[in-house]
Amino acid sequence: MPDQPPSVPSAAPESPIDAEHAAFIATAGASISVGSSSADLLPSITRGIGCRIAPDRSRISVFVAADQARELLDDVRATRRIAVVFSEPHSHRTLQIKGRDAVVESLEPGDRERIERYRTAFTAELGAIGFGPLFTHALIDSGGGDVVALAFTPCAAFDQTPGPRAGEPLANAK
């Protein structure tokens, strides 16, 4: 691991995310952003509207509105690359998790409730820094269209909280 650049880690047998990170990802009202890239190296981006994390942290699913993320979904289907950032506005605490095996899936039972819980948590979080609920709802509005899950195995995770440790792998950041 130490000999390799941090952006291309070898496949880790264990999740790079510990239980505390998982709790942060799953329950904090963090802003969620999802990136991918096409085969010809054009990046794509959309906003996430919730997520699910497997109990053993081996799999993360991020929910996105399909008609807001056409290019990103095409890219994920074509290259399976994904990068997801969770950033908590009031504390600036920021994590980035990357995967190389992302797939586009339908929602599972319970995901609608997860999206609703995320909406509540994110609304409270933005409310604390001065944004009203209607604004936050617009920000993560899915337009009533399809919502899909982008499921992937986390293969690398980085601390991106602004400051001297930004960019370090989570294991080193602790």
């Binding site: 952006s7 999802v34 085969a39 190296l41 990046p43 794509s44 990068a83 997801v84």
Partner: peptide, 12 residues
Amino acid sequence: ATCAADGTPNVA
């Protein structure tokens, strides 16, 4: 979103 020469995406 940007991506590295090897295609790895990054979000900031």
